[in-house]
Design a protein around this nucleic acid. Structure first.
Lengths: 338, 338
DNA sequence: ACTGGCACTCGGACCGGTGGAGTGCCAGGC
DNA sequence: GCCTGGCACTCCACCGGTCCGAGTGCCAGT
């Protein structure tokens, strides 16, 4: 195990490098941090840290920069989560309180997060298998054409058009609507299939086809509803990324456009608590030089979706984590209120 | 007026510069284009073109590059719209035909356009004041809580929750629903306000408050519905932009995130026919080094929204215009079918 | 175990020279 | 009058060399 001081040296290196973006040398370190030892000693420590793979040299006779492994150790053992200042908290609250609907909440959140962290923000729409059904509505648009509207407890509304095989009477429609609602309202998506399984049996022979169709559309919608949508913001912050632009930024932009990738990434994050994925831990190669800080958020005790930021591995982890956590909490509050 | 040959020289300069990204000199020009005159003559023509402001030199003794004004002339007088190749057409059709709903159509369109033009694509959701109401639904979620669902002919669905002052009976609800629909279905958004103006009068005194509330929410929704949403894709193509990255790309990314700006930009484009805004014509300073090619599209004869691309002023105008126009047409077809 | 000293390395900044592409101008030819 | 070839000039991009300093590893001394 590394000695206390060596950890301290690593922390100092990370902090300085994050601040200056330049490889940090032994002398500069001792000047900026009161390590109580001479540069020579620090050099020895650095040699050890390098051997262990926590730091690296871009080239001989240059300072050191942290490796992914170094950041990992920093995040796990050395860094706390920096709480936001109270003006910042107030700003968050003010900013989010003005939201008028779910889209607006998500939109504001993504902008807020991007601004706060000065990085790329990613916010997933709240909706998960854990969501419950608030209401199901069935309308007849034409004799053999229905519309199904599904409202979830997270405030999302989905609608589907259904072409029936034959005409479907107003009475049957009302009947189906009532039965459907009495069975599924308040239930979780995941439980719905078995709850409606036997519904067709209680209808007249001639209506069963349509009822089955409606049910299958409903189930399909529920599945799709668990597919997540997400919103991205603050891509302009990518320009702060590094020096060698085209090569660095390009794959990141590409990765960001593949929502599937991002969703997977967020999905891998732990449901509760904050997850930090650093550099190559991200699997997707376009994001090899980025870190992703993600956290679940939700209206109640359980998280219903994730949000986070994507930034260079060289980021201010404590600050970023603080901002992400704070935003997630406030958004959760807003969702709970509405 | 410029002589025929000078226009030809300008065209050649634009074409070469777009291709090579490097200032083009008189010798290279005569070698690559059969102008039938010597470099010296071309130099004289260039001097005139420069004096008139169509081209400029980055520095003395360098080749010339077109100015915004030069591109303008090129687009207006010298460039045609390059039709797509038939494989390209087929690719478009195949790609768009798989779409399952409106979101999917828009999503596919933006990706397609980005890929085809290798630039940033912007697609506005189809919905305008010209849209008509397909259906209005009213549901009682709780005794004093209603939900209003609005369906437009472009396939969009909006819902709003309404808290009533007092209870609102099922009969009144059905009544209101029926009257509302009979008045507004098939009508344009813009016409709705006057069509429903006197509706409260035909209800019992005790229901009038609620009816008024419902109507005002409906009108509000209609107004919001004319606010446009848009989707952006292909931002990774910005990396192909130029050499001096951070400075060039940054303001563009920022502009792209301000949807309001983009909407205004698209809105300024002519309703039908293609509009090309070059460089500083774009007003928004972040887009001073970009050109925007936009065109309206729609399901019927009238355009209901716009789509287009944002790229460097140094872009292949004929090709881009061809792609934009073709995509708009196919999307229109798809929308008309569904 | 830490420190100061020392020799070494290497990249980045600075500099001056060179080559080439491009220009403007002018005198001559169709 | 317009086009052309020639010529002198300009300026940037590139190249190689030099220099400087930050940083390192190692070692001997406390």
């Amino acid at each position: 195990m590394l000695s206390e001081r060596r950890l301290e040296v690593l922390r100092a290196i990370v902090q300085d490098y994050v601040g200056t973006e330049e490889p940090v040398g032994s002398k500069a370190l001792t000047e900026r941090h009161r390590l109580g030892v001479s540069p020579a000693t620090v050099r020895n420590d650095m040699a050890v840290l390098e051997e262990e793979g926590f730091i690296a040299q871009p080239h001989t006779s240059a300072g050191r920069i942290p490796t992914d492994k170094g950041y990992r150790l920093f995040v796990d053992k050395l860094a706390g989560v920096k709480p936001l200042s109270s003006p910042e908290r107030r700003a968050i609250q003010n900013f989010l309180d003005g939201a008028v609907d779910l889209d607006d909440v998500v939109g504001r959140t993504v902008r807020l997060l991007a601004q706060l962290t000065r990085q790329v923000a990613v916010v997933q729409y709240p909706s998960l298998t854990r969501s419950t059904v608030r209401h199901v509505e069935l309308l007849a648009l034409a004799p053999a054409r229905l519309m199904l509207v599904l409202i979830t407890d997270t405030g999302r509304v989905e609608q589907r058009l259904i072409d029936c095989q034959g005409p479907f009477g107003e009475a049957s429609l009302a009947d189906l609507r009532a039965r459907l609602n009495s069975r599924v309202v308040g239930r979780r998506f995941a439980d719905v299939p078995q709850l409606v399984q036997d519904l067709p049996d209680s209808f007249e022979q001639e209506d069963r086809g349509t009822v089955s169709t409606v049910l299958s559309v409903l189930l399909e919608t529920l599945v799709e509803e668990t597919e997540e949508r997400l919103v991205i913001g603050g891509t302009a912050n990518l320009t702060r990324f590094g020096h060698d632009f085209p090569l660095t930024i390009r794959p990141v932009l590409e990765a960001l456009e593949e929502h599937v990738v991002l969703l997977k990434l967020l999905g891998e994050a732990k449901d509760s608590g904050m997850t930090v994925r650093i550099g190559h831990e991200n699997a997707h190669e376009g994001l090899a030089s980025t870190s992703v800080v993600a956290v679940g958020y939700g209206s109640g005790d359980e998280a219903v979706a994730k949000l986070g930021v994507v930034g260079p591995t060289r980021m201010d982890y404590p600050g970023t984590m603080g901002a992400v956590r704070a935003v997630a909490r406030y958004v959760g509050q807003i969702l709970a209120e509405s």
